[in-house]
């Protein structure tokens, strides 16, 4: 079957790639665009390791077809830091040791950023519900929650 020619925006840059119908957006990011930050965990939309933003919506890129991204604006973990300067969420994840193996971390950071853009001052309960689609098998979540609370405070200038 002929490949699809997809034009999209990824982290603000115009990109073009060719993909098969059956390649997911996650496959295209990793294999066609060499953006390997988003991870393949469960591949069924349960774990959130592949979290990206599509037109401002937090989604699992493993359940989006690559060809569906045509004309869309995609944001990935690669766009989070400002060059060498870490995003406050990244800095706080480091300071709180909110990661161990790190596979889930890009997804948590993308999801946390989506949360703080909508709710700059979330309660702990709101954070836990908002991050319900991201699974971590190492940390027990508590350090992740503390890191997000701390980052939110810093981003509010508190």
């Amino acid at each position: 079957m002929a490949k699809h020619h997809v034009s999209a925006t990824v982290n603000g840059d115009a990109v073009e790639f060719l993909c098969e119908s059956e390649q997911t957006l996650l496959d295209c990011l990793r294999d066609e665009l060499d953006l390997t930050g988003a991870k393949e965990g469960c591949s069924s939309g349960d774990c959130g390791a592949c979290s990206v933003m599509v037109d401002g919506r937090l989604v699992c890129s493993c359940l989006v077809l690559g060809v569906e991204a045509s004309g869309k604006s995609i944001e990935t973990i690669e766009g989070l830091s400002d060059g060498e300067k870490l995003h406050p969420l990244q800095q706080k994840f480091l300071e709180h040791a909110a990661l161990q193996c790190g596979i889930c971390t890009p997804g948590f950071l993308v999801a946390s950023k989506a949360l703080l853009e909508k709710h700059p001052n979330p309660t702990e309960t709101e954070i836990r519900y908002w991050l319900a689609g991201n699974l971590c098998r190492c940390t027990g979540y508590d350090k992740i929650i503390r890191a997000v609370i701390d980052a939110a405070a810093e981003m509010r200038g508190a």
Partner: peptide, 9 residues
């Protein structure tokens, strides 16, 4: 329903 990712899709 589900989690934010599911509700967004």
């Amino acid at each position: 329903i589900g989690d934010p990712h599911v509700r967004n899709s």
